[in-house]
Design a binder for these strands. Sequence first.
RNA 1: GGUCCGGUAGUUUAGUUGGUUAGAAUGCCGCCCUGUCACGGCGGAGGUCGGGGGUUCGAGUCCCCUCCGGACCGCCA
Length: 586
Amino acid sequence: MHATTYRTHTCGDLRLSDAGKEVTLCGWVFRIRPFGGMTFVDLRDRYGITQLVFSPQIDAALARQAEQLGREDVLQITGQVVERSNKNPALTTGDIEVRVTQLRVLNTSRTPPFTLEDQTDGGEELRMKYRYLDLRRRPLQQNLLLRHQVARAVREFLDSQGFVEIETPHLIKSTPEGARDFVVPSRLNPGQFYALPQSPQTFKQLLMVSGFDRYYQIVRCFRDEDLRQDRQPEFTQIDCEMAFVSREDVLQMFEQMVRHVFRRIRHVELPEFPRMSYAEAIRTYGTDKPDLRFGMTLHYLKDEHANLLEEHHFPVLDQAEVVAGISVPGAASFTRKQLDELTDFVRRPQIGAGGLIHIRWLTDNTIKSSIDKYVPAETLLSYAAKFEAKPGDLILLIAGQASVTRRALSELRLELGRRLGLRAADQFMPVWIVDFPLLEFDEQQRRWAAMHHPFTSWHPDDDALLETEPAQVRANAYDLVLNGVEIGGGSIRIHNRTDQMRMFRRLGLSEQEAEQKFGFILNAFEYGAPPHGGIAFGFDRFCSMVIANQEGIRDFIAFPKNNMGRDVMLDAPSDIDPELKKELGL
RNA sequence: GGUCCGGUAGUUUAGUUGGUUAGAAUGCCGCCCUGUCACGGCGGAGGUCGGGGGUUCGAGUCCCCUCCGGACCGCCA
């Protein structure tokens, strides 16, 4: 199948049944084991590794030549497939070897700056600089090969459901709202700029207006914001939109798509996708992207609505807006050192809790707590009971401002889940988060901003609240969360001019601004726009979850940027020719 | 915009309170070795301790500035 004028087989092809054949292989020298006289070479390509034998008994001159080969030299060899006397069960080709009779060095290699083993000795920076070498390593090859399979499975499913892949432009118009745009100067229109799309959002809505009632695209998107382990300035979305659908239709369709991919790639049947409201997620997990692989949910002694605390004359508790915590099963035996570490963890500036109160409910039914000076044991015991705790459990409490406390507990829960091995790499727990708030108040800009995006429709029951109680309006939006990672999100869209204008007005855009920035879509809505909605998946994240159940995405992208948005291999971004700059009117 | 961690042979790293010639592993080079598969044995070369400035009799080590990398907060509709 992979035979060419250069080779008859790949390095992963040959089996015992091929013994006796004369074959020609091409590949890279992976490891070389010279003995006096005979030399073994592991020849590698993306299909596998085949052991070559050079021996004085076959060709003395060739055997001497083989001793001079270096790692990563590119070879073409011809020889006879023979059964091995010592088989290697670790290799799929381990039953055979090739006794080489002809050797041609197609190209030599300098010694690579790091080893190309599965566990490389290379540091991050070096591997990025020599990305093409890093990509020779098996783990990264596997990632990219599987990424290709994920994309295939996605297309296979969507094609089967009548979706049409349509390309949309990359040179578009900069719009307010959302992330910072990357811009491209226009030579033909000096002083003016295109923007690169943050997503094809408005185009896919226009395609709905055009009647392509099932659209998708695996498409590059660009956002000029700071990077993270799971965020790149250019990333790939599975962008989807459907006309004549309700939220239920969209959730059903894409639950099936995700199931299909997991079946194809992981041979895993996912559990049913439960639904959870945004409010419930925040209350019980402290986050809108809960990891449902384990429990340890949040319990409240005091919140915005109720106070179960007694008066303790202990300001930390008495003055807190929220007092909440989690019960850690079997952790009452944690040492002082472990508890101190957890305290430091929640007090880190990024998390910002004031401190951590612990209540250890020992197996002899006694209580040991950091606050037993202030709170009597029987009261602590009654508090512990509210956490569905039992003897042997550790209760960790945080008191303070509501949002900070919830976030700290959410992070603490994940950290403990990690330490206790509750976040299993082979377990997948999806959940749809629904009923997000439509709007959130941007304290810096002193205005309301769309939580999802400004084209999201709202719950009909909340229509009257848009102008009066914006914080109370529920969006017709949804996120798909898998093991604590947001892998997709979407909404049912606004599809008439009147409501879209109400939204823009709510966001503080004047009639003129709305017309100038979004006139094209407002106009389109006046020509028979159908009800529609959709979803977009972060394809890189989706792949990293499907393939490895991990959050980082760089190892699933062939040529990623570093955390300053630089391509260290190309050394981009860089200065441009002053002449070019002049032509562009910069 | 901010916080934290790191930068020492090609590579990954150790380096005590500031004190003799900066140590190891791996890779590389040479010699030996005919069944290894992380082959093995012996030997060798390889360092502007990221850069600059300062403190000191003396700085890899302490201080200041700076560059680079990583993680995170803000930000990411």
